[in-house]
Computed example of a mutant assay.
Amino acid sequence: MKKITRKKHLEMRLQNIPSHPKPKVNLEQYTTPSIIASDLIWNAFSFGDIDSKNVFDLGCGTGIFTIASALMGANFAVGVDIDDDSINLAREVSDKLNVDNLRFIQSDIADFDPGCNVNTIFQNPPFGSQRKVERGQDLKFIEKAIELKPDVLYSFHMASTEEFLLGYYGDNNLEVTHIFRYNFPIPKIYDFHSKENQDIEVIVLRARL
């Protein structure tokens, strides 16, 4: 597999990952745009959080962060998602892209046991942008990440919850080192959506345990 040396090349590879064909509203399934995923992965690589590391992607969806981590030299990358449709598509895509050193597991994150040392976690949980989604799902992901004890965590959240989250992270001995800010596009994919596209302000907190 040819080594990727430019962020733009990574973004171009990630553009081949399709959107979820049957998104489920209760899981708040939205595809992370390749421009956002490539930017975050490129920064994580620059911090030394991917190359030769054991990387886990919780709530991986169709696998964009798992595949990107493998492309950027992870020792191995594991994507975990409760939705079997997402996992099946992620496996198909990784095979087509000829990406190895990764695997996908269908599991509720609450029941997931990696069985090895965890260096880096990426997670893009349901962050509560929709009224029909159960609130607090992102906190459950943080609790699982604390249990797994990675060296570093990257976690997506609504930007409007930043002040609360910084307090929550601090109370749980998570040292926030960086905050990445993105406008996350939400397309019209559910019946209750009234706009063709809407940008949601999100943050990604990089934290050390």
Rank of each mutant, 00 (worst) to 15 (best):
D84N: 11
E201Q: 13
L205N: 09
S69G: 05
G170P: 05
A110K: 15
V152S: 13
G170D: 12
M72S: 07
N197D: 05
K188E: 08
V204M: 02
K8G: 13
K195S: 11
T62K: 07
P23K: 13
V99C: 07
H20R: 08
F112S: 07
F156N: 03
D49V: 04
K132D: 13
E28Q: 11
I41D: 00
N119E: 15
V133K: 05
D111N: 14
A110E: 13
D138E: 15
V202K: 01
G63D: 04
Q123W: 01
R13Q: 11
E134H: 15
P126L: 09
E147D: 11
K3V: 13
G115L: 10
S160C: 05
N54V: 05
F112K: 09
K2S: 15
R206W: 03
R91K: 15
L97K: 05
I200K: 04
D111H: 12
S46L: 10
I64M: 03
I82Y: 07
E163K: 15
E134W: 07
K132G: 06
P33A: 10
E162W: 00
A159Q: 10
K149E: 12
N16I: 02
D57P: 00
L102V: 00
T62E: 04
I203L: 02
D81T: 03
G167Q: 07
N88S: 14
E196G: 10
L205D: 02
D85H: 10
S34L: 08
R135Q: 15
I121T: 03
D199M: 08
H9W: 05
C60T: 02
D113F: 11
R13C: 12
Q29M: 07
H178Q: 09
Y169E: 03
V55K: 01
L102I: 06
R208F: 12
I87L: 08
C116D: 12
K22W: 09
G167E: 11
K149R: 14
I203W: 00
N119F: 09
S94T: 07
G136W: 08
I203H: 00
E143Y: 10
Q198C: 06
F45S: 10
D95H: 12
L10I: 09
N98V: 07
I36N: 00
I50R: 01
L165H: 04
D39P: 02
E28R: 08
Q123L: 15
I41W: 02
L27W: 11
L139A: 12
R131S: 14
T120E: 08
D95L: 12
V93G: 09
R208P: 03
Q15F: 09
I121N: 03
L148K: 11
K96N: 14
K2M: 15
Y169K: 04
I105W: 10
K144G: 04
A145Q: 04
S107Y: 10
Q130F: 15
D171G: 00
F180A: 04
I121G: 03
H178A: 06
D111Q: 13
G167V: 00
T120I: 09
I82R: 07
G128I: 10
D57E: 05
N172I: 01
P126A: 13
S34W: 05
N117Y: 14
I82H: 00
Q130L: 15
E134G: 08
I200R: 04
P185Y: 06
G59T: 00
V202I: 14
D51Y: 10
A37F: 07
G48L: 06
